[in-house]
Amino acid sequence: MSELPAAPEQIVHIVDDDEALRDSLVWMLESHGYAVSAHDSAEAFLAVCSPEMTGCLVLDVRMPGMSGLELFEELGRRHCALPAVFITGHGDVPMAVSALKKGAVDFIEKPFAEADMLRLIEHCLEREREGRARRRLEADTVRRLEHLTQREREVLDLIIAGKLNKQIADVLGISIKTVEVHRARVMEKMGANSLAVLVQSVVTVEPGNPSR
């Protein structure tokens, strides 16, 4: 039996031009067992970032050159979906609120308590794990849909539209027994053990269903 691939290591990516604060955060997080990568500017992080990165971001709102908020927006355009916590100084709260509206997890004001930062980091990492699992499930659903025959797909669409077997048979001009066979094959191919699971998985990747 082959082993499942190991889950990628989550890394806390710190982007802050303040060397003292950056070093302090690295020490604090590493002492609590987190893997950490530190960058002194938004541009430095952009040079190494990729959509495959896992973990989370700790971003200073205000930095020379590209700001933390501008970096977060650029990462969104690059489909780098890392949850982010913003570090703000006094007077930067409006910028942090703007970041929240754009999808950031939270912001924390300097000076901050170690426990508060650790709580936010753990929340971000849990959110990233959940998002990665959800994307993996959605990709699996899309792959399974591609393996359905045309007739199975027609039956599936009518199931999602709430049609009963007799109604599906009437619409497609086939027998109820044939509908039952196709329905069983659809459930098997989609890996669904209930109608609710089947509908939810398909509607998640195809929001336009049932009518498509």
Rank of each mutant, 00 (worst) to 15 (best):
D16N: 10
D16C: 02
D17G: 07
D18I: 04
E19A: 11
A20L: 10
R22I: 03
S24N: 08
L25W: 01
V26P: 00
V26W: 02
W27C: 08
E30Y: 03
Y34M: 12
A35H: 14
H39A: 09
H39Q: 09
S41Q: 13
A42Q: 10
A42W: 08
A42F: 09
E43N: 08
E43S: 11
F45H: 09
L46V: 09
A47E: 12
V48K: 11
C49A: 14
S50L: 12
S50R: 15
S50Q: 15
E52C: 05
T54P: 05
C56A: 15
V58T: 08
V58Q: 02
L59G: 05
D60A: 14
V61C: 13
R62P: 01
R62E: 14
P64H: 08
G65V: 07
G65M: 12
G65F: 14
E70G: 12
F72A: 14
F72V: 12
E74W: 06
L75M: 15
G76M: 10
G76I: 06
G76Q: 15
G76C: 11
R77F: 13
R78E: 13
H79W: 07
C80F: 06
C80D: 10
L82A: 03
L82P: 03
P83E: 10
F86M: 14
G89P: 07
G91R: 05
M95N: 07
M95A: 10
M95G: 14
A96H: 01
L100V: 05
L100G: 02
A104V: 00
V105M: 10
V105D: 02
D106G: 04
F107G: 01
F107S: 01
I108D: 00
I108A: 02
E109I: 01
E109H: 05
K110W: 05
K110F: 04
F112R: 02
A113P: 00
A113L: 11
D116K: 10
D116A: 10
M117I: 07
R119A: 15
R119I: 07
L120C: 01
I121T: 03
C124V: 02
C124Q: 00
C124H: 04
L125N: 03
E126T: 10
R127W: 02
E128V: 05
E130Y: 05
E130I: 15
G131W: 03
